[in-house]
Amino acid sequence: MATIELDEATLQGQAEIWRFMFSFADSMALKSAVELRIADIIHSHGRAITLSQIASCIDGGGTPSSDITTLARIMRLLVRRKIFTVHHPSDGGDPEYDLTNSSRWLLHDSDQTLAPMILMENHPLLVAPWHCFSQCVKEGGAAFKKAHGREIWDLASENPEFNRLFNDGMACTSKVVTGAILSGYKEGLSSIGSLVDVGGGTGGLISEIVKAHPHIKGVNFDLQHVVSAAPPYDGVCHIGGDMFQAIPNADAVIMKWVLHDWSDEDCIKILSNCRNAIPKKEGKVIIVEVVVKLDGNGPFDDMGFIFDLLMLAHSRGGKERTEVEWKKILEGGGFSRYKIINIPALTSIIEAYPDHD
C-alpha cells in the first residue's frame, strides 16, 4: 500500500470528522451519569469522593455488581469534557472526583437542573427522528412522523411513560428559562398592570411572574383541556381558548417557546391576534425565544443551530429564527418596532410594539 503524506490541515480535517462521527458518545456518557445520579452522590457527600464511594451509593445503597472499571472509563471522558473534575492525592491514594459548574446542572433535586431534559432528549424515541433527516430532504414531511408514524403529541397521549418523560423535560427547561426572565427582565415587567401568557400551559410561568411582581394581574391562556388541569394560583386566572381565534385583553402578552412551534403564516396570525388584545400605544408583546445568530460566538449561540434541527426532528413546521426572520413575521403581525433583550439563558426576549393605525 502506497504511503500517503497528509499535510497538517488535511490531518486536522480527518480528526474533526472522527470527533463529529462519535459526538454522540458525549451525550451517552452524560445520560449514564444522570441515570446513575453521580452528581447527586458527590453533592450529598459535600466533597470530592473516590470511585468506590460513588459506586457504593449507586441505586441508593450500592449494588454488589457495580462495575467500577466501567464507571472509571465513563468518568474519564466526562472529566476530559470538564463535566467533572478529578484530584490525585499526593499520598498516592485513590483519585477523588468532584463537581464543576457544569455537573451542578445534573442535580436532580435542584430547581435549576437540566437532568430531566438530558434523559428526555437522549431517549431512543426522541433520537430516532434524527435518523430521518436525509429522508426528509428527499421526500419532505416531518421527521418524527417518519420515525414513528404519528406526531409527538399522539405518541405522548398513547404512552404514559413517554408522556411523563416529556413533561418532566419540558418542566425543567421552563424553570430554567423562567428564572432567567425574572432575573434579566425585571424592568420590562415593572410597568405592566395586566399580562396574559399565551400558550401558558398549566400556569407555571405566569404564576412565578405574579409572585415576583404582585401588582400584575395574571392571565394564563391555553386550550380548554390544558387549563382545566391547571392548579389555582394567587393573582392568576385561567382562561381556555384558541390563540388562532382570539386572545384575552391585557396590557401585554407574553409567549415563551410558542412561536417556534409554528410556520411563518401561523405566527403572523397569532401575532395579529396579540395586537388586537393589547393597547395600541402602551401595549407590547414579550416573545421569549431563541434568536439564531449566524456569526455569533456567545456561550449559547451554537445552541440556536442545534435547536433549529431539534425542531426539525420533533415538530411539524417549527423552526428557530434569525433576527431577519423574526422581523419579517413581526411586521406581518403588525409589529414593525421591536428590540431584542439579552437574558441569562439560551433564549432572548423580543419586545415588540404594535403599529399605530
Rank of each mutant, 00 (worst) to 15 (best):
312 L>R: 06
164 R>I: 13
152 I>Y: 03
332 G>L: 03
355 D>E: 12
23 S>Q: 11
182 L>I: 13
209 I>M: 04
23 S>V: 05
326 W>D: 00
271 L>R: 08
288 V>L: 12
319 K>W: 01
211 K>G: 08
115 A>T: 06
11 L>E: 10
52 S>P: 02
79 V>T: 05
280 K>Q: 15
238 H>C: 08
21 M>D: 06
304 G>Y: 03
253 V>K: 02
216 I>D: 00
204 G>W: 03
314 H>T: 15
333 G>E: 00
197 D>W: 04
231 P>D: 00
88 H>F: 15
88 H>E: 15
68 I>L: 14
116 P>S: 03
29 A>S: 14
40 D>F: 06
123 H>V: 09
289 E>K: 10
106 L>W: 03
256 K>Y: 05
356 H>C: 15
177 V>P: 04
311 M>N: 08
41 I>Q: 09
298 G>S: 12
166 F>Y: 07
24 F>P: 04
111 D>F: 14
293 K>M: 12
313 A>N: 02
351 E>P: 03
86 V>A: 13
210 V>G: 06
7 D>F: 03
211 K>N: 13
10 T>W: 00
205 L>T: 06
285 V>D: 01
259 L>C: 06
103 S>V: 04
125 L>R: 01
226 V>R: 06
72 A>M: 01
351 E>N: 07
153 W>D: 09
180 A>G: 04
160 P>M: 13
270 I>Y: 05
82 K>E: 12
107 L>Y: 01
334 G>C: 09
26 D>R: 11
233 Y>C: 01
52 S>H: 10
103 S>P: 05
16 E>Y: 11
198 V>M: 01
52 S>L: 13
243 M>A: 15
86 V>H: 08
